[in-house]
Simulated assay, not measured.
Amino acid sequence: MLKSVLKAVLFDLDGTLADTDPLHLLAWREVLAPYGLKVDPAFYRERISGRLNPEIVRDLLGLEGKEAERLIAAKEARFRALAQGLRPTPGLPEFLERIREKGLLWGVVTNAPKENARHVLEALGLRPPLLVLAEEVGRGKPDPLPYQLALRRLGVAPEEALAFEDSPSGVRSAVGAGIPTYGLLTGHEAEALIREGASGVIRNFTEFAWPEYTSEK
């Protein structure tokens, strides 16, 4: 049987294209402190990372509606204020250059709100040909729908794509869509990512070895 040819690469945003999780942690710590919640790295990994904002505030505080929206807006405004001078994950610029050289399609699939996603991408100087926002899809990671939509928009099969994620919920989403997925060790342990189906883990993009089935241009 012929091996599939790689046609597309899909990236998560936060914790994948840039190590933004420490900034999100700080922002959540500030907005949740008045509610008596202490956000340390373990709490962030277990209760916040990779989840949609409405789910986070409903789970942690039982908030919905306007009060939830105000809290989320305050958190995201604080994140954008902190997220100045962002730098890409090591090896990303060279990795994207290889993607261009190979003639591959690429895009970003994220649970981040639209304003945050645009802020981070602009700060990194990136203009992905495809941007799939969970809030516009109607279901976020770990549901596979955001990645399924990305595949449809690019016109590629799951086995013709690669995905890069940094959270267990993100890995579960991409793997659930049938995409071979690699985990970045920016916020979670390797075991947690492998357990959700990651094909391998890397600290950054300098460590990635292109699969054998990749067709060179």
Rank of each mutant, 00 (worst) to 15 (best):
E122Q: 14
D14L: 09
A161Q: 00
T206A: 08
D19I: 14
G187T: 15
S215K: 15
V108L: 04
A112Q: 11
V31Y: 08
N116A: 05
D143C: 01
K114D: 07
H24M: 12
R139H: 12
L131K: 04
P22A: 10
G15D: 03
K141I: 06
G62C: 12
L154F: 08
L126H: 02
L2D: 14
T214V: 15
G91M: 09
L25D: 03
T20D: 05
G15H: 12
L130R: 07
K75M: 06
D19G: 09
A198L: 11
N116Q: 10
G155D: 12
P41Q: 08
H188V: 07
A83Y: 02
D21P: 00
H119N: 03
L10C: 10
D19H: 15
G15I: 09
L185V: 08
A81V: 01
A42L: 15
S49W: 05
G36H: 14
E135I: 04
A112T: 07
A27N: 06
S199C: 02
I72Q: 04
P34W: 08
A33K: 15
G125F: 00
A74Y: 14
V109C: 11
P113E: 14
V39P: 08
A190S: 15
V31K: 09
P88Y: 12
E159D: 12
A18H: 01
G197H: 07
E76F: 13
L130H: 03
G107C: 08
A77W: 14
E122A: 15
E189A: 14
L184P: 02
R152G: 07
T110A: 06
G91T: 11
E159R: 12
G62F: 02
P142V: 05
A157Y: 06
A83G: 01
V201W: 10
R70I: 02
L52I: 11
E135S: 12
E101D: 00
R127Q: 11
V120F: 00
E160W: 01
V137I: 15
P22R: 04
F205E: 10
L86D: 11
V175F: 02
E69M: 10
L13F: 13
E55H: 06
G183M: 09
I179A: 03
L86V: 12
G170F: 01
E136W: 11
T186Y: 14
G200W: 09
I99H: 02
W28R: 01
K3R: 08
D14K: 06
A117E: 10
D40M: 05
I99M: 01
R127W: 10
L124T: 03
L82P: 07
E136A: 03
V57D: 09
D14Y: 04
T214E: 14
G85R: 14
V137C: 04
H24W: 11
T89N: 04
A77V: 07
R127S: 14
R153P: 03
L26S: 13
L2H: 09
G170A: 05
L23S: 11
F208V: 08
K7D: 00
P54Y: 12
V109Y: 13
R203A: 15
A161F: 00
P211C: 06
L184F: 12
R127P: 02
T206D: 09
Q84W: 00
W210A: 10
P93R: 11
S167G: 04
L96C: 04
S167D: 02
I179F: 00
V108N: 04
E136K: 01
D21S: 08
G187I: 15
P93S: 14
